[in-house]
C-alpha cells in the first residue's frame, strides 16, 4: 500500500518532526496490539473474568487522539482505545491489573477490563452506557473554565452506534452551546456489535452531524496513521485555540469481534476486502519502511521490546493480590458515617 499525502513539500525539520511523532505513535500502536493479543490469549486460557474487548484496526485513530493531547488535558477513552490510553500516559500495568483483577490496579477489582481510569489525572473511567462520558468531559472543561484554567482540551471517543444515543446528542449540543474545547472522536467501524450502519443511521455521512450542532467537523481515513495524526492534531489545536467543539469521524473497519466472545461472522466480506479493511498497523509499518524512517530489523527490535514489556508486566501482575471480600469495606459512600452498611 502506498500512502499519498496531499501536503505541500515541507522542510526537512518538519519532516523529521513528523517522522518522530509517527514512529512514537506507531510504537504505542504496536504495544497496544500486542498487549491486547496477550489479554485475548489469557482470556482463551480462562485467566480473565468478564469480557475482553480489543481495538484491532482502531489503533491509528486512537493513538492519534491520545498523542495529540498533552499533560493536563482531559481524556475519556472508550472500549477500543488501548493505544490512545498508552499515548495519553496510562501505565501498561493499569490495563493488565484491571483485566486480571489485581487489588493493586486502579479499580481494585471493583470494576474490570476497559472500565478503568485515573480521574484525578484527567483520564475518566468509562461506564458502559454509550454517550455518557461526553457530558462528563464537557463538565471537566466547564470546571477548568470556572477555575480560570486556560488551554485545556478534553477528548472522548465513541463508535458509530454511540452516535444514535440521546446522550451523544445532548452532550454535543451542550458542548456547542458552551463552546467548549471538546474533541469528539467517532470511530466509524461500520458495526455496532453486529448491527451494520444501514440499521444505525441514514445521514449521508456522520460528519454532517457537526453542521447540526454548529461545530467544526473533520473526516479522516482511520487506517492511515499519518492522516490520523494530522487530522486529530488539527482538531485538538482548533479546540485549544477557542474554536469550540470538534467532531472527528474516522472511517475504518473493526478487525475483530465486538469482544473476544464474538467471531464477527456477520461482517460483510466485501468490506474486509475494501480499503476500510486495511490493518492500520500494517499500513503504518509499510509507510515507515517505504519512507526509510526505520529498518525492518529495527521494527523487529521494537516488537521484541514491546513483547518483553508485556511479559514482564504480566509476570508482575499475576503475582499480585486479588481482591478479598473479607478486606473489602463494602461502603459506596465517601461520607462513611452516612453509610447504611
Amino acid at each position: 500500500m502506498v500512502l499519498q499525502t496531499a501536503e505541500a513539500p515541507c522542510s526537512c525539520m518538519e519532516a523529521s518532526e513528523n517522522s518522530q511523532s509517527f514512529l512514537k505513535a506507531y510504537r504505542w500502536m504496536l504495544l497496544a496490539r500486542l498487549v491486547e493479543e496477550k489479554i485475548a490469549s489469557l482470556y482463551r486460557g480462562g485467566k480473565i473474568f468478564g469480557g475482553v474487548f480489543v481495538s484491532k484496526g482502531q489503533e491509528a485513530l486512537s493513538v492519534a487522539i491520545g498523542s495529540s493531547l498533552r499533560k493536563g488535558d482531559i481524556f475519556a477513552p472508550l472500549i477500543r482505545d488501548q493505544a490512545g490510553r498508552l499515548a495519553f500516559g496510562e501505565p501498561l500495568l493499569d490495563c493488565l491489573r484491571t483485566y486480571l483483577g489485581s487489588r493493586l490496579g486502579p479499580m481494585r477489582g471493583r470494576d474490570g477490563n476497559v472500565h478503568r481510569g485515573r480521574p484525578k489525572e484527567g483520564m475518566l473511567p468509562m461506564i458502559s452506557h454509550l454517550g455518557a462520558m461526553i457530558p462528563a468531559v464537557a463538565g471537566c472543561l466547564m470546571a477548568r473554565r470556572f477555575r480560570g484554567i486556560e488551554g485545556t482540551v478534553g477528548a472522548t471517543c465513541i463508535g458509530d452506534g454511540g452516535t444514535s444515543t440521546g446522550a451523544f446528542h445532548e452532550a454535543m449540543n451542550l458542548a456547542a452551546v458552551e463552546r467548549l474545547p471538546l474533541v469528539m472522536v467517532v470511530a466509524n467501524n461500520q458495526y455496532a456489535y453486529s448491527t451494520p450502519n444501514s440499521r444505525q443511521f441514514v445521514c449521508r455521512d456522520l460528519v454532517d452531524k457537526a453542521a447540526g450542532y454548529g461545530i467544526e467537523g473533520h473526516s479522516v481515513d482511520a487506517t492511515d496513521l499519518g492522516a490520523c495524526l494530522k487530522t486529530l492534531g488539527q482538531a485538538v489545536d482548533r479546540a485549544r485555540a477557542g474554536h469550540g467543539p470538534q467532531l472527528v469521524i474516522g472511517s475504518l473497519l473493526r478487525l475483530a469481534g465486538h469482544g473476544e466472545h464474538d467471531d464477527a461472522h456477520y461482517v460483510d466480506p466485501a468490506l474486509k476486502e475494501s480499503a476500510l479493511g486495511r490493518d492500520c498497523l500494517k499500513v503504518a509499518e509499510q509507510h515507515i519502511l517505504s519512507s526509510k524512517w526505520a529498518a525492518e530489523s529495527t521494527l523487529l527490535d521494537w516488537n521484541e521490546e514491546a513483547q518483553k514489556q508485556i511479559d514482564d508486566a504480566v509476570a508482575l501482575t499475576i503475582r499480585e493480590p486479588l481482591p478479598d471480600p473479607n478486606q473489602e469495606d463494602w461502603c459506596a459512600l465517601a461520607t462513611r458515617h452516612l453509610s447504611e452498611g
Binding site: 482531559i74 462520558m133 457530558p135 464537557a138 463538565g139 470556572f146 449540543n173 451542550l174 452551546v177
Partner: peptide, 19 residues
C-alpha cells in the same frame, strides 16, 4: 439546554475537577 442527561453528566465531570 433541555438535556437532563448532559446536565447531570457535566456536573459529574465538574465534580471530578473539584467543583
Amino acid at each position: 439546554p433541555i438535556s437532563e442527561d448532559a446536565i447531570i453528566g457535566s456536573a459529574i465531570g465538574a465534580a471530578i475537577e473539584g467543583m
